[in-house]
Amino acid sequence: MSDTTIRLEVFRYRPDNGGPSFQSYDVPYHDDWVVLDALNYVKNYIDGSLSFRWSCRMGVCGSCGMQVNGEPSLTCAAFLRDHMPGPVRVEPLTNFPVERDLVVDMNGFMEKLDHVKPYLVREDEADDLSAEYLQTPVQLDRYKQFSMCINCMLCYAACPVIGRVDDFIGPAALALAQRYNLDSRDQGKQMRQDVIFQNEGIWECTFVGECSEVCPKHVDPAGAIQQAKLEGAVDYYKRLLMPWARRS
């Protein structure tokens, strides 16, 4: 325990009660506290009306993404000690409409996830559950990294394209499409390519690379998108030069 405090400057917005503002709170400083601990301290003992999402506080549920001093961060993994002596400015993730305080509207993101058909597609008639599909560690390794996305949406907050183009499918969803495209068990690549090669798909990406910078799980969505672009380009020229060949 210590007597040191740190100041939080928290973005407040109530749609039924005027415009946005910042509110300051002084909370106890602990060496091992994360920003989420400080927010919970505020909610529990200072101001119960502060709203934000959180659950696992171990960096895997993806609920608690916010802007911490301007950087998209998981607040459960952003230590106060890295922001001493403060103040720490906490805002909702940028590029998303704000519902209330630190809570953003995720519906658009959820629709984009749905859009890329993020599930195994098989041509088998019936599902035979007597044995697993075989997949070697090498085959697993091809897509494993892209399967680590926790849908925390930090990459959407970091992406300047999302800020300008509403319909851009965005880093996490495109990485997820690539995850299934690279899975040796999947047969739905063509279907997914039809979605991600559209205008609001991969070609909107200008390879800013910020999505990969902020990703707490090192998924590297920027890499996934560039790989998809490369495949898309190769695919295009193949069809141009060899119209008789089957699309890969």
Binding site: L120, E132, T136, P137, R185
Partner: peptide, 22 residues
């Protein structure tokens, strides 16, 4: 076992042996 195989068929990236079995 059937339920876990079902999860496998639904894309769960189980860790594997070199043979490709879970």
């Amino acid at each position: 076992p059937r339920e876990l195989i079902q999860l496998e068929h639904w894309g769960c990236p189980w860790s594997r042996e070199d043979s490709g079995h879970v």
